[in-house]
Amino acid sequence: MKTDKNLTVHDVARVAGVSIKTVSRVLNNDPTVRDKNKEKVLSAVAVTGYRPDLNARRLRTGQSYLICLLYFDYVSNSYSSRLVSGAIEVCDDFGFDLMVRPVKDRKSLAEQVRNIAARSNPDGYILTPPMSDDKDVIAVIEEENKSVIKILPMELDDISCVNCDIVAGVREAVNHLLTLGHRRVAILNFFKVRGGLLRYQGYEEAHRQFGLPIDSTLQIDGPMESDEDYERAIRQMLSGEDRPTAFFTFNDYLATLVYKVASQMKLRIPYDLSVIGYDDDPSSKNLWPPLSTVHQPVVNLGRAAAGKLIQQQILKQTYNHSEDLKCRYIQRSSCGPLL
C-alpha cells in the first residue's frame, strides 16, 4: 500500500471493488449512488486513509469548497458561536470549509463582502440577523453570482431562508407569567428587526389570550449604545410607582442586566420581580436563580443554513430537512407568582 500522501482514487476503487467513477460520485456526495456501493467506498476510504486533493478538486470543478458565515460581533455573542458549531458539522459532512467573519463596522459592510469575494471566492454565504435583511450585502452576493442563505430575514421563502417559530416560544413564556398573576409585564426588545417583531407578536398574543391591553409604557426599545444605557432604562422603569412585576427580554444577555439592576435596587428575583430571557444561552442556567428562557434551536439553525446552502444551492441536490427548529419555553427558577 502506498503512503497516505500518494494515495489516489484508483487505490480506493481497487480496495472497494468499484469503479473510479463510483468513488468520485461518493466523494462528491452524489445522492443517486446505491447505499451498498457508498458503504464500500467509505469503508475503503477509512481503511486506506485516503484524503482528496482539494486543490485538484477546486481546479476540476471551479469551486472553492468554502462557504462564508457573516455575523455582527458584540459582547457575549454565544448565539453566533453556536450557529458556527452547527454549520461546521454540515460542512465537514460535505467536504466544505467554513470561513467565519465577525463584523464590527456596519457602515462599510457591502464593501467588506466584496473584498471577501475577491480574496477568498466562497461558493456561498450564510447571513445572520440583522445582516440577512441588508439589501446592499445581498446585492453584492448576487453580483458575484454566489448562493446565499438568510437566517430569520423579514421576508421568507423556502429556497434561500431558514426560520424558527419565535412567536410560539415567546407566547408560551409570557403566558406563564400571566398565569402566575402578573399583569404588568415589561418587554425589553429590538422592535426594528424581524426577530424583535416576532417576539413582540408572541408577547401581544399572550396578552390577547388573557384579554389584557398592551401598555406602551412597559416597552424598552433597543439596541442601545452601551450596557449603561440599558441599565438606566431598566432602573427608571423599576423606580416608578406602578413598576412592572415581570420582565421579558430580547435575549439572555439583556436579562442579566435586569438581574444586575434588580440586585442594586434590592429587588429579589423571583419574589419581587420575575424575569424571562430568550435564546437559552448555556450560561443562563448558571445565574442565580437560574434564568427561565425561551430555547431557540441555534445550533440547528446553523445546521439547516449550511445544509440548505451546500446541498440544495451549491451541489444542486435534494435538501432533506430534518432539523428540529421549534422554540420552547424552558422554565427554571426566575419566575414566581405575583405576591
Rank of each mutant, 00 (worst) to 15 (best):
P102H: 05
P52Q: 14
S160R: 12
Y125S: 04
L127S: 09
L315K: 09
R119E: 10
K40T: 01
P297C: 13
D272M: 03
L7D: 06
E204S: 15
R114L: 05
F210P: 02
V33P: 03
S80E: 01
R303C: 08
G307Q: 04
I214F: 07
Q201T: 13
T256A: 11
D158L: 07
D92E: 12
K285D: 12
I159E: 15
N320K: 10
K5N: 04
A206V: 12
N28S: 12
S108M: 04
V75T: 09
V90D: 06
D133N: 14
L273M: 10
T245D: 11
I234D: 04
A255Q: 02
D35C: 07
I276D: 02
V103G: 02
Y329F: 15
D134L: 04
F94M: 03
A139D: 11
D165L: 07
S334L: 00
G307P: 13
R184C: 07
R58N: 15
V148D: 06
V12T: 05
L287C: 09
R183E: 15
S216E: 15
L54I: 15
S226H: 04
D92C: 08
D221Q: 06
R57D: 04
F210C: 11
D123L: 03
T256I: 12
V185I: 15
S322D: 13
L83V: 03
D165F: 10
N115G: 05
H321G: 13
